[in-house]
Amino acid sequence: MTVKILADSASDLSKVHYSENDMEMVPLTVHLDEKEYKDGQEIEPVVVYNAMREGKSPKTSQVSPQTFKSIFTSYAENNQALVYFALSSELSGTYQTAKMMEQEVKEEYPEASIHVVDTKCVSLGYGLVCLHAAKRAREGASVEEIIDAGTHHAQHMESIFTVDDLEYLYRGGRVSKSQAFFGSLLKIKPILQVEHGKLVPLEKVRGSKRLFGRMLEIMEERGADLKNQTIGISHGDDIQRAEQLAGMIREKFGVKDIEIEMVGSTVGAHAGPGTIALFFLNNTNK
């Protein structure tokens, strides 16, 4: 029986990805206008972005323990192997909750092949890790081989972000109020990266015209065998700029395989509309 791959909605993968790769998705929760929605199932990202443009501040919460226990128990009862590649533990408590439920289920089903892996990744970079693991699963790889391949992919995933408005990062505690104010005043665009699972500032670029050029320079400095890997681009309801960046990458590096997806409701609620994120590997040897 093929090993099943589980991802959460912060992977920003589409329903087509889950269907075509025989993966399962567990949703985080979005809180908006005093209502709760299952991310990726009950609310579209554009609804969240429009709310943020109107000045609203949607919140998110992790997957519940009972949800994980139910999923893990069903796989244990059917004696099927499951590997859950989780959103970075530095950005959500979902991984820790899943680990607790993994141990709880294994107390009742000691032989259960249930495994929880912290990717330290987010958005489509995390999604690419899950797709790589699912590919190995379809090829008939063992649980150990899948975890090894997914972990290697995650450890070498570069995640470069920029946002359209620093105000959203200020609300999320990523920049100070003065940085947000002066950044907007001086038209400074931040470039951030995921480092050890956390989203941290990398540098600032004055003017949007230089922004994508600098992102490609970072890509050239850090990337490995870019032409022969899958590049990820996710966007906060700005497909035009995402496709512009994709065109620049194809022209500069000869890349053929680029996945473009909208940043989902969970990640988007913190990054805001206009976010552009770029994902690529700095080591493709494994």
Results as ranks from 00 to 15, higher is better:
residue 5 I to C: 11
residue 8 D to L: 01
residue 8 D to K: 06
residue 9 S to G: 06
residue 10 A to R: 02
residue 10 A to I: 00
residue 11 S to D: 03
residue 15 K to T: 14
residue 17 H to S: 10
residue 20 E to C: 08
residue 21 N to Q: 09
residue 22 D to E: 15
residue 22 D to W: 11
residue 30 V to Y: 08
residue 30 V to G: 07
residue 36 E to N: 10
residue 42 E to N: 11
residue 43 I to K: 07
residue 49 Y to C: 11
residue 58 P to K: 11
residue 59 K to C: 06
residue 61 S to R: 08
residue 62 Q to P: 00
residue 66 Q to H: 14
residue 71 I to T: 09
residue 74 S to L: 04
residue 74 S to Y: 02
residue 75 Y to I: 09
residue 76 A to Q: 07
residue 85 F to D: 08
residue 86 A to Y: 05
residue 87 L to E: 08
residue 93 G to H: 03
residue 96 Q to D: 13
residue 101 M to S: 01
residue 103 Q to G: 15
residue 105 V to W: 11
residue 111 E to M: 01
residue 116 V to H: 03
residue 116 V to Q: 06
residue 125 G to W: 09
residue 126 Y to A: 02
residue 127 G to P: 02
residue 127 G to R: 12
residue 135 K to S: 05
residue 136 R to D: 10
residue 136 R to Y: 09
residue 137 A to N: 01
residue 140 G to K: 13
residue 146 I to S: 00
residue 148 D to Y: 09
residue 163 V to H: 01
residue 164 D to W: 04
residue 166 L to S: 03
residue 167 E to P: 04
residue 169 L to R: 10
residue 171 R to S: 00
residue 185 L to A: 13
residue 192 L to N: 02
residue 195 E to Q: 15
residue 197 G to Y: 13
residue 198 K to Y: 15
residue 201 P to T: 13
residue 202 L to E: 15
residue 208 S to G: 14
residue 218 I to V: 12
residue 219 M to R: 13
residue 220 E to V: 15
residue 220 E to R: 15
residue 221 E to N: 15
residue 226 L to G: 12
residue 227 K to C: 02
residue 229 Q to Y: 11
residue 230 T to D: 14
residue 230 T to L: 04
residue 230 T to S: 09
residue 231 I to G: 06
residue 231 I to H: 12
residue 231 I to K: 06
residue 232 G to Q: 11
residue 233 I to W: 02
residue 234 S to V: 00
residue 236 G to E: 00
residue 237 D to T: 06
residue 240 Q to W: 00
residue 241 R to V: 12
residue 241 R to E: 13
residue 241 R to F: 09
residue 244 Q to V: 12
residue 246 A to V: 04
residue 247 G to T: 05
residue 247 G to I: 05
residue 248 M to Y: 02
residue 251 E to D: 12
residue 254 G to R: 05
residue 256 K to E: 13
residue 262 M to T: 04
residue 263 V to M: 00
residue 265 S to V: 01
residue 267 V to S: 00
residue 273 P to V: 03
residue 274 G to N: 08
residue 275 T to E: 06
residue 285 N to H: 07
